[in-house]
């Protein structure tokens, strides 16, 4: 109510849609900018070393005279790319396993829960390091590490949703009509689970990108020559004591903004998809 009065013609729903659209546009713009960026933009220029942020270098330059704004955008786009890839893959696994665990009775859910317990039992960071070592570090190791460790919580949500749906009238009716479990899973369960799944997927992204940057920061992730956010921050770590604050602050805030945008998309999409709050 308050919002409606404040924004005059815009009602809550329109406002939500605008927020989602804006966030998507910003994220797409950063990703695209990073991909088509000329390497010259973040190449070393030793004449312009250690400059604080200014109009010319928005985020300043580092000890090799590389423009930090260009590096940050490039790094963000790499991180977004890997994060999206990994969170999509892990969400599909979560959906698949969650639906199976929910549909196929006691044993399936028993096995599912057991595996979730195992994967939740080892701290994610330890498992990520182990998988990254296994695959010889690099982008592939990070992506697969995130995929292997992140499906658990979304899988549980999907499973709970499926279990609740199984008791519903229309599923019972379908069962009595002799439909197979697989048919029911695809025709009755999936359509209900998909909205939850999409929100879960988008909210998975912040976790993915933060684990990606953490593991890279520790030295098990992306290679040092790639301008990823984790690399930029771990390099900034070495120059922290020299007072070059912008090396750590600016890329970090940029990462923070991207993560907040994803959370905004996720939570606003949930408001739209959830019938209880959609009409507010």
């Amino acid at each position: 109510m308050k919002n409606m009065r404040k924004h005059g013609i815009l009602n809550r729903r329109t406002l939500t849609l605008i927020i989602i659209a804006l966030s998507v546009i910003i994220i797409l713009a950063v990703t695209a900018a990073g991909f088509i960026m000329d390497e010259e933009l973040y190449a070393p220029h030793f004449a312009e070393k250690n400059l604080p942020p200014s109009g010319h270098h928005l985020f300043g330059t580092d000890w090799m005279g590389r423009d930090m704004f260009a590096r940050t955008v490039k790094g963000l786009s790499v991180s977004i790319y890997i994060g999206l890839l990994a969170s999509c893959a892990t969400s599909v696994i979560a959906l698949f396993l969650g639906v199976i665990a929910g549909t196929f009775g006691k044993y399936a859910s028993g096995i599912f829960n057991w595996f979730v317990d195992i994967f939740m039992g080892i701290p994610h960071l330890i498992l990520l390091i182990l998988i990254s070592l296994l695959l010889g570090k690099g982008a592939k190791g990070v992506a697969i590490g995130v995929i292997v460790t992140h499906w658990c919580s979304l899988g549980r949500i999907v499973q709970a949703e499926v279990l609740a749906l199984k008791d519903s009238q229309f599923v019972k009716a379908s069962e009595k009509l002799g439909k197979t479990k697989l048919w029911i899973a695809f025709h009755h369960i999936m359509p209900h689970v998909v909205p939850q799944f999409i929100v879960g997927l988008i909210l998975m992204f912040p976790h993915a990108i933060m684990h990606e940057s953490s593991i890279t920061f520790l030295g098990f992730g992306l290679p040092a020559e790639q301008p990823a956010i984790g690399i930029i921050l771990s390099e900034a770590m070495k120059h922290l004591t020299t007072g070059m604050w912008w090396l750590a602050v600016m890329p970090g805030i940029s990462l923070l903004i991207i993560v907040v945008l994803f959370e905004a998309i996720g939570s606003h999409l949930r408001m739209l998809l959830d019938p209880y709050s959609a009409q507010e």
């Binding site: 912040p206 933060m210 940057s213 953490s214 920061f217 921050l233 900034a236 770590m237 922290l240 004591t241 007072g243 604050w245 750590a248 602050v249 970090g252 990462l255 923070l256 993560v259 907040v260 959370e263």
Partner: peptide, 20 residues
């Protein structure tokens, strides 16, 4: 905001402010 920032970055910022 805190939930959206990596723990190591918060550590770096604290280090920057209170130590450096």
């Amino acid at each position: 905001l805190l939930e959206s920032s990596p723990a190591f970055w918060i550590g770096m910022i604290l280090l920057l402010i209170f130590s450096v």
